[in-house]
Amino acid sequence: MRTTTRSGVRPLGAADVAEFLALTDRNPTVNVFAAHRARTTRLEPRLLGGEVWGQFVDGDLVAGCHVGANLVPIEAGEDDIEAFGERLLRRGRTVSTIVGPQPAVRGLWDVLGDSWGPPRESRWEQPHLVADGQPLIEPDPLVRASRPEDFGALYPACVAMYTEELGVSPELGGGAEGYRARVRQLVQLGWSFARYERGRVVFKAEVAFATPTNAQVQGVWVNPDRRGEGLAAAGMAAVVEQVRRTVAPSVSLYVNDWNQPARRAYAKVGFRQTDTFSTLMY
């Protein structure tokens, strides 16, 4: 039975899924992570590995906050951020990352920073980009969906990308088994794309989260000894073309503002900026 809340913050559950998805649909490309999590877990804490909180005003759900390994604000304004922040202060830090639209992340940091301490890394300027039409350049014909037999070549490339991007190995602290399972899952879903040459990956990217209308791409990587050849632009053109055909019609991602080669590649493909994200990593 649904819990009735007139105003304030409470954890959401299965009875709230429809209302929560209506909230994420206000900005579906920005909120694809939250919508994907709601669709795949039905907001059950056991499946979420955490909770999703809702902020209610006069009985209406006006904002959300995913509280798991990732802390992600959803359609949260200043008052919502303050309410979520106060609840988070009472709880203490259990998350490893705060990520989302820049104003909301800044607001959370203003509330939580003194208590939670400095993050390991702060990435305040991350353009959020969307491509929802045909690529502007010719796709790389050698980029294809990965197959189970590709795992031996794909997995080391995934570890290399993760380590280069985040500064720590996904295998650290006994995480290899879980990360291997995740890579296999993406292959099984048809969400892993790569160009393979002589048994190794020279370009790759994955769909991380998806809804019927939007797919978020992560893990874009070019083998270091093949950078500067245009593989990223042509490869991403192929990913956009294939993802729009097989997963969802709109493709999004966010990129560090200082990564000029990646930003140039995405612009060539036809990605345009729609928002700015920030990420704080602990």
Rank of each mutant, 00 (worst) to 15 (best):
W116H: 10
M161W: 15
A215V: 00
Y162M: 01
P148Y: 11
T3P: 02
T24A: 05
P224W: 10
L142Q: 14
P135K: 09
S146V: 14
G173L: 03
T5D: 09
V95C: 12
V9F: 06
F84A: 02
G54D: 07
V220F: 01
R91D: 11
P224A: 04
W116F: 15
A215C: 02
D58I: 05
Q260G: 05
S192C: 04
A265F: 04
G64T: 06
I81Y: 01
G77P: 03
G100W: 12
C158K: 10
A38T: 02
T213A: 02
P118K: 08
A210C: 00
L61M: 06
E165K: 08
R26E: 09
A18M: 01
P156V: 07
W191T: 00
Q216D: 13
E51Q: 13
R93L: 03
P135I: 12
G59W: 14
E121W: 10
T24S: 10
G152Y: 09
T24Y: 03
E86R: 15
E171W: 11
L231T: 04
G270Y: 08
W116I: 07
E82Y: 03
V159Q: 00
E138P: 04
E197W: 01
A35F: 13
C158V: 03
V251I: 09
T211H: 03
P139Y: 08
G59N: 12
D114N: 13
N223I: 01
V243G: 06
L129G: 08
R6H: 11
L89T: 08
G92N: 11
T24V: 08
R264T: 09
L166T: 11
F20V: 02
R6V: 15
G13N: 09
G100F: 13
D25W: 01
V62I: 12
S96I: 05
P249K: 12
V187M: 11
A233S: 15
I74N: 01
L253W: 03
A18K: 08
G175D: 03
D110I: 03
D257C: 06
V105G: 07
P212D: 06
R46Q: 13
W109G: 09
V9L: 07
A233K: 09
V239G: 03
V72E: 13
T97I: 15
V105W: 06
T213H: 05
T97F: 08
F151R: 11
A131F: 11
M1F: 11
G8F: 09
E121D: 10
P224Y: 06
A83V: 10
V217G: 01
V202A: 02
V72R: 07
H128E: 05
Q102F: 00
A232T: 15
Q242G: 00
P119C: 10
F209M: 14
A34I: 06
G100A: 04
W191V: 01
T94I: 11
G113F: 02
N214L: 00
V130E: 11
Y282H: 14
V202P: 06
D79A: 15
P148N: 06
